[in-house]
Simulated scan of single mutants.
Amino acid sequence: MRLYLLAINPTDSVTEGFLPAAARLGLDVTVLTDQPERHRGRYAAGVEVLECDVRDFRAVITRMSSHHTPDAVFTNSDHLQTQAALAAEYFGLPGKSWQAALRVKDKAQMRRHLAASGTGTVWSMEIGPGEVPAAADVPYPCVVKPREGVASEDVVLVHAPEDLLLHCKEIQARRPGAALVVEEYLRGDLHTLETLGDGAVRHVLGGFRTELSAPPHFIEKRSTFVPAHPEPVVAQILTQLDALGIGFGICHTEFVVHEGRARIIEVNYRAIGDQCDLMLAELLGIPLFERVLRTHLGQALPAELDVRRDGVARIDWPCADRAGTLTAAPAATDLIVDGVRLVYRPLRAVGERHELYHTNRDYLGVVRAVGTDPAAVDRVVAGFLADQHWEITP
C-alpha cells in the first residue's frame, strides 16, 4: 500500500514518529516536498522523496496521479492540511474535511465560525495586507498575530494603540502580503488537549499544562502532562471542536481556562510537536503514530484504547536569550535516574549563528522525562539542567 506524506521541512514528528510507524505497517512511502534536498538522505532506505509544489493542491494531485496510485494521503504540517485533505477527497480516500482544515488554519475564520456557532465568542479583528488597524476600537490588552502563523511567530501582547500600530507595521514589514489578526487577550492558564478520531469514534489522549516566557512574547518553555483535564473543561473544548468540524485523525488544541470557562487559542490539526508527540507515545504505551496512520488508511479506531494511566511526564526547552553563535552545548543524552527515563536532544548545532526570534526557533535543545513519580521527574530534570552549560557568543 502506498502512503503519500506531504512535507515542507523535515521534522522530528515525521522522522522519528510517522515514518518508522509506516515502516512497521509495511507501507511504501513517498514523501512529496518542495524542499527535497533537505529530506533526501535523512530517512531509512526505501522512503521515496519527490519534489512537488506541496502548497498547491493541484500540483499534489497531479504528482500523485502521474506516479503510484495512492492508498492514503497524510501530512503533519500545519501549512499542508487543506492540501492533503483535498487530495485525499479527490482520490476517494479517508481524510480530514478540507473545510475544517481551512477553518482552523485561518485564525480569523476560526473566530468567525465559533462565534456564529454560539460555542465561543472572542473579540477579534482581521487586518488585510498593508492595512492599518483602527487601534482606538481595540480592547486592551490584546494580542496581534499572523492570521495563518504557527509556533508563536510574531505573536505579541499589546497594551496601547501606539504599540499596536508599531507591532503591526513591524510584522507587515517581515511578512509582506500576510494578513493579521488582532484579538482580545484571553486570560488564564495555558493547556492543551490531544485527541484522536476516525470520524465516528474520538479518544481524548490527555493534554499538557504549558508554561510560557514572560510577556510580551509567548514562547513555550515547559509542558507537563495532564492525564485528564476536568470533565466540564474537556466538554467545552470538544463542543467547540465539533462546531469546527474537527474529528478525524490527530489534533492538538491549545486553550486557556479562566473562572471555569475554556476558550480556544488555536487548533493545530496535527500531532503536538517539539517532541511532545514522541513523549506522548512513550507515556501512553500505545503505537500512537501507527494509530494515526491507520485512520488515514480507513481503519476504525477501537472503542477503547489500552493506554497507561500511571505515567508522569515533563518536557523542557532550554532557550537562547541572545543572538549569537552557539559555542558550547551538551551532547545528546539518554539517562535512567531514580526510575525516570530522561532524553536530551540538541536542536541547534555548535557553531551555528542565529538571531533572537522570540519563538521556538530560539530553542537550544529539548529535555524529555517520563516516570511514575512527579517529584522524581521534577528532581531529575532540574538536576540535569543545572549540570548543563550552553554558551552563546555575540
Score class of each variant (00 low, 15 high):
residue 201 V to M: 02
residue 337 V to P: 08
residue 291 R to E: 11
residue 240 Q to G: 03
residue 71 D to C: 07
residue 293 L to R: 08
residue 225 F to V: 12
residue 141 P to S: 02
residue 9 N to R: 05
residue 317 W to I: 08
residue 318 P to T: 10
residue 366 V to L: 10
residue 84 A to I: 10
residue 383 G to L: 12
residue 368 R to W: 12
residue 278 L to Y: 05
residue 143 V to A: 00
residue 167 H to F: 13
residue 267 V to Q: 01
residue 377 V to E: 04
residue 384 F to Y: 08
residue 212 L to K: 10
residue 134 A to H: 02
residue 258 H to W: 08
residue 206 G to E: 01
residue 31 V to K: 01
residue 349 A to M: 11
residue 119 T to V: 07
residue 378 D to W: 11
residue 102 L to Q: 10
residue 37 E to D: 10
residue 95 G to M: 12
residue 43 Y to E: 03
residue 351 G to H: 14
residue 290 E to G: 10
residue 246 I to L: 14
residue 218 F to T: 00
residue 243 A to R: 02
residue 16 E to F: 07
residue 188 G to W: 09
residue 15 T to F: 01
residue 385 L to V: 04
residue 224 T to L: 05
residue 242 D to Q: 10
residue 93 L to H: 12
residue 371 G to Q: 12
residue 178 A to N: 05
residue 235 A to R: 06
residue 199 G to I: 12
residue 227 P to I: 07
residue 335 L to A: 14
residue 349 A to F: 09
residue 178 A to L: 06
residue 49 V to K: 00
residue 98 W to P: 15
residue 327 T to K: 04
residue 369 A to L: 14
residue 123 W to T: 01
residue 7 A to D: 00
residue 38 R to Y: 02
residue 345 R to L: 15
residue 16 E to R: 06
residue 197 G to R: 13
residue 40 R to I: 01
residue 116 A to E: 09
